[in-house]
Amino acid sequence: MFGFAMAAMAPALVISRMISPRKSSNPVKFLPMECGQVPTGEGRTHFMMQYYPYILMFVVFDVMAIFLYAWGSSLLYLPKSATLPMIGFLGIMFGAMSFALYQSGRRRIW
């Protein structure tokens, strides 16, 4: 399906390229969009968005979330006693997340 959509969409661009006008009359036309002004500086800069703690937390907890599926999908076939360690794990993770959020709230800009 991925391949099909690619194969189906590429012609759209090609057709568009064929029937649309193409004029390179003015180099200003090909400048990046900067509200009518000539851009100053590069578009790809070293750009630090704040809210860094969230990204750090994401790296950790995204993996955790996917690992939980291994447990969740086989939960019906596991003995009930196997759930307790998982609940402990969830509790630890939840506590860790709360602590991380608390810390990130204390320092607004990293």
Partner: peptide, 15 residues
């Protein structure tokens, strides 16, 4: 002073 990190955005007039 324009730092490396600081990005100058022209907001307008075509915005």
């Amino acid at each position: 002073k324009v730092d490396e990190r600081i990005m100058t955005l022209n907001v307008g007039p075509q915005h």
